[in-house]
Write a protein that binds this DNA or RNA. Structure first.
Length: 848
RNA sequence: GGGCCUAUAGCUCAGUUGGUUAGAGCACUGCCCUUACAAGGCAGGUGUCGGGGGUUCGAGUCCCUCUGGGCCCACCA
């Protein structure tokens, strides 16, 4: 074994084993990635990391996109920026509630009293145990804390260079203060308002949902053709998929130009069964091609009903309650004896069973014409719900988002243009969404685990709430829970009493909190110094499907509160696809757990795969790429060991050999390319550039200098190679550091002090004095490849001798060969070289 | 119905403002124990660049059109 220089500490048998544990722990305990608050504003790079939803397991997609952000963070840090890279846990909202329900088999019943020291029992039975709101929230907090520990461990194993001292939870006290404060400011500026209005309603969760949370699902349905009686006792026939809404019918509508129905406009007809008189109206949204060309308007079957109801100022006749069932009491507008007598049959039924029942009743009465025709059609669902949405009229809180205000919309579209998008074409999705908004942002939710709306209302002399008299807290008292805190000027005994007050029972939409993630992480109004350093932030990384929610709502909040964007740049990451090109499903994601992946291939290898996924591009899940990444990491270990063992050093003034200078000239180009790519967020291009050089470096350059470095050409020539090797290794290890943080930290520790991740990103200037003529190495490599090929074709060992090498080339090429001739002879076992000048390059290898 | 992305080797993908004979990795095959690395190295074949039309001296690249795939939105009687 060659003697090692004393300062080097290269292991006998380098290995990737346990590097995650060794370095990951050290980075955390030594606070390697701590944000330096003392850095000047322009030297700060702040990242608005997506807070992952803590509602179960992380999947491969998280590993993918969080790695992308980490690559940028590490590049910026090495480039001299003080990087503010916090993380939050999104433990606020429905997913947590639902997970607690399933995990512990409980459900929240706010009417129950709190049980101290309640211990949930896991039961297999279908029935859920009812517990108080406070007990429920405690279970939410317990479970999220457990999940957050697992998340933290995974992210540390993955090597995310997060500053863990700035971790927040979207339900923690600081986040509640920020979101309540922001809401109160919205309210002061009249950007928040309450309204009694038809609202999309999930009957399972019993909560309102926002436009952004809708999704369509294909569901079976059926056309029912139903006749309404005209004043002259003849009939008009409509078609509907929702016959159960017949008692909620408030009008019929047809297109104004529809000759078939023109005579009916302005007249009234009677609903079958219930015999309620309703007008026939004309509206351009009615489609003559659909059904019979005339439709019934109900309160409310769909969003078009809401439009018609509003424009014609029609009465509100809701029959579906908040539980999704038909109301128990017969509604007042049903006055006919037949209607009143059949009501008890449908009262309390779900929409689904009422549909069947009414269809049968219509059949019996002869009002159902022809057969029921089954179809499949898209139905609106809450994206987290299992049952179709209903539309019910409720009082809710809204924040203006440009959906009803052209001036605001124009401002927000302007913000979208001002933002730097990576990739750029993603901005179109933002524009389409903003241009298509048709209402303000509904933020109140009838849930338990979330940030409460910080509001109380006055109760009148009869004990009824007067919603026009909103009582707000002082900002200094935040956060508050209006269910347990008392507004100033009142005492607890006045709660729910006539002339007293009532707390708003609702919580805010999860996006109402998430939209403030930059302000929460930057500790807005809590740490002025920090906030001024990091806000507006530099980067928001996120995926494309939440441009309309998270990105847009964040822009809305920052625009109104700070009159600025929340960040200058947004980087959109793609999705992980199955090998069959479909979006990777949750179930499959759970089979391949991220931790297993990291353990099997190594974190650096998994990061390599992620880094090969370009910004914004969907990428196939591919363990093959991880194997390549692992091979690269091992190669870095071995090449570093080799170089250091041979005596790589920093005596750069010894670099005189033309081949060494040529290699460094190539490396200069790599540094320039990688830096340029990284600064435009194209980490993939940066990695490719470095990797390509590195393999050529090991395959050709290291082979060429082997004998020289052992002293075959004398001391000076050996020293030139050792110094060039030292410089190249230092540069290469740093270039790889953002991608493969563990293996680079390991090899760096063999011969340098301090963490490589805090060392400067390589600059071309480091190399300029020693770099010259990149073509020389390329030409020598080309000849070496021909020599190897000849040996391969002859099925000989690479150690076989070459008796004669005949090269026809131009004089530049010839000079290149001559200046590296000794190295070429040694690496190729060449005994003799004959050069003839000519235009056509030709290389002829004669073996012994 | 509107918008965006995408189509290149068996697979995964590069291909810059149009410019020699379109590249890489994987996979596959063969060879080599070469004193960093056999979990290695070296070498090798592979293409109607989705179809059609146009602009140009020249098109994988620009324009038009058709087709396939993906995503977002709208429609929901």
């Amino acid at each position: 074994m060659t003697q090692l220089p004393p300062q080097h500490n290269v292991p006998e048998k380098p290995s990737l084993a346990n590097l995650e544990d060794k370095w990951g722990k050290k980075w955390v305990t030594e606070k390697t990635f701590a944000f330096d608050k003392s850095a000047p504003r322009e030297a700060v790079y702040a990242i608005d990391t997506p807070p992952p939803t803590v509602s179960g397991a992380l999947h491969v997609g998280h590993v993918f996109s969080y790695t992308h952000t980490d690559l940028i963070a590490r590049f910026q840090r090495m480039s001299g920026k003080s990087v503010f890279y916090p993380i939050g846990w999104d433990d606020n909202g429905l997913p947590t509630e639902r997970r607690v329900q399933n995990y512990f088999g409980v459900r929240c019943d706010p009417s129950l009293a709190y049980q101290a020291n309640y211990q949930p029992e896991k039961s297999d039975s279908e029935t859920q145990v009812a517990i108080s709101r406070k007990n429920f929230v405690e279970l939410c907090e317990y479970l999220t804390t457990e999940d957050e520990k697992a998340f933290e461990e995974l992210f540390q194993t993955l090597g995310l260079s997060i500053d863990w001292d700035y971790t927040y939870q979207t339900i923690d006290e600081k986040a509640r203060v920020v979101s309540q404060r922001a809401f109160l400011r919205n309210l002061e500026r009249q950007e928040a308002y309450q309204a009694e209005a038809p609202t999309l309603w999930d009957v399972t969760f019993k909560t309102a949902v926002a436009q952004a949370e809708l999704e369509d699902r294909e569901r079976p349905g059926a056309y029912h053709r139903i006749r309404f009686k005209k004043p002259d006792n003849s009939f008009v026939e409509i078609e509907t998929t929702r016959p159960e809404l017949l008692p909620a019918c408030v009008a019929l509508v047809a297109h104004p130009d529809d000759e078939r129905y023109k005579p009916l406009f302005g007249t009234t007809v009677k609903t079958p069964l219930f015999e309620v008189e309703v007008p026939v109206v004309a509206h351009s949204l009615a489609d003559p091609e659909k059904g019979s060309g005339i439709a019934m308007i109900c309160t409310f079957g769909d969003l078009t009903d809401v439009t018609w109801w509003r424009e014609f100022n029609l009465p509100t006749r809701p029959i579906i309650g908040w539980d999704g069932r038909i109301t128990k009491e017969c509604p007042s507008w049903i006055e006919s004896a037949s209607g009143i007598s059949l009501w008890p049959e449908i009262a309390g039924k779900t929409a689904h069973s009422a549909k069947e029942l009414i269809a049968n009743l219509l059949k019996d009465s002869g009002d159902l014409i022809g057969e029921i025709r089954p179809i499949t059609h898209p139905v609106k669902f809450f994206e987290k719900g299992d049952k179709p949405l209903e539309i019910v009229t409720t009082r809710q809180w809204y924040i203006k988002n440009g959906g009803r205000d052209q001036a605001l919309r124009k401002d927000l579209l302007g913000r979208g243009t001002e933002l730097n998008w990576h990739p750029d074409y993603m901005k179109v999705r933002y524009q389409n969404w903003v241009e298509g908004l048709n209402g303000d942002w509904l933020i109140s939710r009838q849930r338990f685990f979330g940030v409460p709306l910080p509001l109380w209302y006055r109760l009148d002399a009869n004990g009824n709430p007067d919603y026009s008299q909103v009582i707000t807290p002082n900002e200094a008292d935040l956060p508050i829970d209006p269910q347990s805190d008392v507004p100033s000027g009142f005492i607890e005994e006045q709660r729910n009493q006539p002339n007293g007050f009532i707390g708003d029972p609702d919580v805010m939409d999860t996006w109402a909190t998430s939209s403030l993630s930059p302000q929460i992480a930057a500790r807005w109004e809590l740490d002025k110094e920090l906030f001024e350093k990091v806000f507006p932030m530099n980067l928001r990384p996120q995926s494309h499907e939440i441009i309309r929610t998270w990105l847009f709502s964040s822009v809305v909040r920052a625009n109104s509160e700070h009159n600025s964007l929340p960040w200058t740049d947004v980087a959109i990451s793609g999705w992980i696809l199955d090998p069959d090109r479909k979006k990777m499903s949750k179930s499959k994601g759970n089979v391949i757990t991220p931790m297993n992946l990291l353990q099997e291939y190594g974190s650096d290898a998994v990061r390599y795969w992620a880094a090969m996924g370009r910004p914004g591009t969907d990428t196939a899940f591919d363990t093959g790429q991880m194997k390549i990444g692992r091979r690269l990491a091992i190669k870095i270990l071995n090449a570093s060991k080799f170089g250091l063992t041979l005596g790589a050093n920093s005596n750069f003034e010894n670099i005189t050999n033309p081949l060494d200078k040529s290699m460094l000239a190539q490396l200069t180009q790599v540094v320039e390319n990688a830096t340029k790519a990284f600064s435009t967020y194209d980490y993939t291009k940066a990695l490719e550039s470095v990797e390509t050089f590195f393999w050529n470096f090991t395959d050709d350059y290291l082979e060429l200098i082997k004998e020289r470095i052992y002293g075959a050409q004398g001391e000076a020539e050996a020293e030139s190679a050792k110094a060039a090797l030292g410089l190249a290794l230092s540069i290469l290890q740093r270039l790889f550091a953002p991608f493969l943080p563990f293996v680079t930290e390991e090899v760096w520790s063999w011969w340098q002090t301090g963490s490589i991740h805090k060392k400067p990103w390589p600059k071309a200037e480091e190399l300029h004095a020693y770099a010259e003529n990149p073509e020389l190495l390329a030409d020598v490599s080309a000849v070496l490849t021909e020599v190897r090929k000849a040996k391969t074709v002859a099925q000989l060992s690479m150690r076989a001798d070459v008796s004669q090498l005949v090269v026809i080339c131009n004089d530049v090429f010839a000079n290149h060969l001559k200046s590296a001739q000794k190295d070429l002879f040694a690496a190729g076992r060449v005994q003799n070289l004959e050069i003839t000048l000519g235009d056509e390059l030709s290389i002829k290898v004669s073996l012994v």
